[in-house]
């Protein structure tokens, strides 16, 4: 299910880019100005129609996830691009993130960081919060879908039907088999283009961790979902298609009995908390973005 296009049209996406240096920013508004090493986009409030993550059953048989409308009444501030290798390396240097050798090794520092687990991504967000004073965290699945707009694909392929589960299983295998193989080599930032919100590389070759846990729910005849079990050892990752990933996995793989294509890479894109719980930095940030103040943020890469 994709976002209704009119929603995307109605949203004003403000992109703040910077011309100023760190020194310049300190001069501009000392002590109170949040300094971020990345550009962010404020996606204006709006609605998102989507099928939530997780497995659903009706009367004990597999069923499609219900269509939901989620109303966002505050802007979503989210990184324009994914965290780069250089940015992650700075966290490693500060002994706040684990050093990772593996996927993406050998890629230049300006490329997106790949090969990170959920735990690594959370460590990075916490470090970013400490160093900037602005609360950073991973998005939830619905925030990601909202930000991704037309790039979101919340269908997990044909569902296993009630009457002929095996034929549906084969159909799902066919659908997964027809997905194009994605070259996993990290590409320059922006290589996969921008979406209608001004976010670059959504649904490119790097899937992004979300905080949403795997959930199994029963759908009542009223359409109401009753959660049965929740497993936060498995989180939703988002990209070209939604996937579920154990939180310590850095390099997803298919093989053996598994069919279909796993995410090509796992990476990070953070949201900035704007609920005011951080001493108001996030709110102030929004306010300045709304007034079009330039130089508030800078892109350190």
């Amino acid at each position: 299910m994709r976002l209704a296009t009119e929603i995307g049209m109605a949203l004003a996406a403000a992109v703040v880019t910077a011309a100023a240096t760190v020194v310049g920013m300190a001069w501009l508004e000392p002590a109170t100005t949040p300094v971020l090493p990345h550009t962010v986009v404020a996606v204006a409030p709006g609605e998102v129609h989507y099928r939530p993550a997780g497995d659903y059953t009706v009367a004990g048989r597999p069923a499609a996830a219900p269509l939901r409308t989620v109303r966002r009444d505050r802007p979503l501030v989210i990184m324009t691009r994914q965290v780069t290798r250089a940015e992650y390396a700075a966290c490693v240097s500060a002994s706040a993130c684990p050093a990772i050798a593996g996927a993406g090794a050998g890629a230049t520092p300006d490329r997106p960081m790949v090969g990170v687990s959920f735990r690594d991504a959370v460590a990075y967000a916490e470090w970013m919060t400490r160093t900037t004073g602005v609360v950073h965290r991973l998005p939830t699945d619905d925030e990601w879908v909202f930000a991704a707009a037309e790039k979101a694909d919340t269908e997990a392929g044909p569902l296993i039907a009630v009457d002929d589960p095996i034929r549906a299983w084969l159909a799902r295998y066919e659908a997964e088999s027809s997905r194009a193989v994605v070259d996993p080599a990290p590409q320059p930032v922006g290589a996969f283009g921008a979406n209608s919100r001004g976010l670059v590389d959504m649904a490119g070759n790097v899937w992004e961790w979300t905080t949403t846990c795997f959930e199994r729910s029963a759908l009542k005849p009223s359409g109401e979902a009753q959660p049965l079990t929740t497993n936060c050892g498995v989180r939703v990752v988002q990209g070209q298609h939604r996937s579920y990933m154990t939180d310590f996995i850095r390099d997803p793989k298919a093989g053996g009995c598994a069919a279909g294509l796993p995410p090509a890479n796992l990476g990070i894109r953070l949201v900035v908390e704007t609920d005011g719980g951080d001493g108001g930095f996030g709110l102030r940030l929004l306010d300045r973005m709304a007034r079009g103040v330039q130089g508030l943020l800078f892109d350190g890469s």
Binding site: R167, W169, K253, G255, G256, C257, A258
Partner: peptide, 20 residues
């Protein structure tokens, strides 16, 4: 009916090295 996997049942070779 269904999907069967035919593997080298050294499962490391099947899943990690490709024998599937």
């Amino acid at each position: 009916p269904g999907v069967y996997a035919y593997v080298n049942h050294n499962l490391i070779e099947a899943a990690e090295l490709g024998a599937t």
